[in-house]
Amino acid sequence: MTKQPGMPAYKNDVEDDDIYRLRLFVTGATPNSTRAISNIKEFCETYLKDRYELEIIDVYQQRLIAEKEQIIALPMLVKVSPLPQRRLIGDMSDTEKVKRGLNLSAV
């Protein structure tokens, strides 16, 4: 797993429960993937500033993970925590849906 450089780092002064651990599965540099990466980064900076951890995984590089993670559609964003775990697919262009998917609609 490759952590993207320049990604906002984990802050100590924030409680663990509030931290959004996100994993984004992409396929190399396909249009959908690049769009998804930029969209989610923008989203996180807007709504989850300083309380998220984003991991971007290229499934092409790690084919085994596709079966393990039950990946079908890509790009896919998995919200590992806080629970419940949620899966979001698509290029993350629909902000409202991403918010709902991450349970941020109340914010």
């Binding site: 092409y60 079966e67 039950q70 698509g90 290029d91």
Partner: peptide, 29 residues
Amino acid sequence: IDYVHIDRSEIEETGEYDLDGLFIRLDYA
């Protein structure tokens, strides 16, 4: 045998996507 699990309640669609995941799994298998 590769079991593919899909549950609509777990998935939110947020825009354009493709089934590359399936392709990759199948290809790997």
